[in-house]
């Protein structure tokens, strides 16, 4: 199922908080839609976080847990009243446990058109080594 392309979806999914935990900011937090794919030398993560400013995106990698947190300040046009609301503006947060050993010093992040792109190169030790069979 995860291999096939998905159709566009307009709905956002809210983060499910564990019981007894509350956010410090009284605001909705969404689970950003993500694509993750693996190449020979890296893990690439794409994440939709529309509305976030580059400076407000926080990416941390601790042990094997990658956490992305983006703060979004809702912009409300002055002297205008909201007549129809089909989406809410809120923060984004998501964590992933990475299975491969990642070379933490070479992680690259870029942000364009509301999509965060992270390239997590695999550490040398975790790269699959091809062993060629020598024929005598």
């Amino acid at each position: 199922m995860s291999e096939s392309e998905k159709a566009l979806d307009a709905e956002k999914q809210e983060v499910a908080l564990s019981e007894g935990t509350e956010l410090t900011r009284d605001r909705v937090t969404f689970l950003p839609r993500s694509d993750i794919y693996e190449t020979n030398d890296a893990l690439v993560l794409l994440m939709d976080i529309p509305g976030a400013k580059e400076a407000d995106i926080d990416i941390t990698l601790e042990k094997n847990i990658l956490t992305i947190h983006a703060l979004v300040d809702p912009k409300e046009p002055e002297n205008y009243a909201l007549a129809l609301q089909e989406y809410e503006v809120g923060d984004y947060q998501r964590s992933f446990r990475l299975s491969n050993e990642i070379d933490q010093d070479r992680i690259e992040a870029s942000y364009r058109h509301g999509v965060l792109r992270l390239v997590l190169p695999k550490a040398e030790a975790a790269k699959a080594k091809k062993i060629s069979i020598q024929s005598n």
Binding site: S2, E3, E5, K6, A7, Y37, E38
Partner: peptide, 9 residues
Amino acid sequence: VRYHRRERG
């Protein structure tokens, strides 16, 4: 490439 996750439509 091998997709681990594909949620973005």
